[in-house]
Amino acid sequence: AVAAPVEIKFSHVVAENTPKGQMAIKFKEIVDERLAGKVEVKVFPNSQLFGDNKVLEAMLLGDVQMAAPSLSKFQKYTKKLQIFDLPFLFKDMEAVEKFQNSEDGQKLLGSLQKKGLVGLGYLHNGMKQLSASQPLKVPADASGKKFRIMTSDVLQAQFEAVEAVPLKKPFSEVFTLLQTKAIDGQENTWSNIYSKKFFEVQPYITESNHGVLDYLVVTSAEFWMGLDDGLKAEIKKALDEAIKHGNGIAAQKASADKQQIIDSKRSEVLELTDAERAQWVTAMKPVWKKFEDQIGADLIKAAEASNN
């Protein structure tokens, strides 16, 4: 008799037309083509199975085999991945990519093992920008303003460093809170600002590129170790190709969405002069020091080196 194919349930929280959604579909297509009968991928978009907060737990229970939450979601599983939240560590996506592909970056994928998870690869969303109801040119402009953040100690410290007020609010409530001006601003990538229509309710967007918002494609250690090495290698290869495909779309989308936002004239995009940018860096860089013990000074240094 023929053994039943290995089932991979890929659960994510966004629509199918996003880079992450496209990456998942691509992965399924490649697997269908090359590993037909051996592996079967089922993609569940739009939080159909689980939300981002519970998907990792479901994975540990063995009910989901793959997911791609944002890197900030892992702070309770490993402190090391907090490195990607540090402000002004990477100057652009090229530097991010370079670090992720470096030996240190790849070693980080294994940092979740103790908690039963295995990182399989990084997937891009893009560099984060600051949007607000008032123009933000220098750190003093952000002082006293309320910014929505994802749950992340680093992001909290980042806004506290410029004397702003970080507020944790569920993503689903952000639009309403921005629209009613109950909160003043938020940080996000071009594609999120565009797809969630934040630009319609935030008259100013500062092109700060102050941080990165990336995802980690992850699986459970139990599942992964249970596969034979040949199959593991083939799945990883398929995934790497799918991620490459997804990252290509993400890069295209970031610049296209930025252009759409500018063309809409709903929001003014502010560019920072070198002097202004230096002020932000000076204000926010102490955050690195604060998390140095948790992340590791060497690792931060290695990441910084990827800018050159």
Binding site: K146, Q156, V165, L167, K168, K169, P170
Partner: peptide, 12 residues
């Protein structure tokens, strides 16, 4: 938030 321009980070 409204009165003191502050957040309670563990409240949610």
């Amino acid at each position: 938030r409204f009165g003191f321009n502050a957040g309670i980070h563990w409240a949610q």
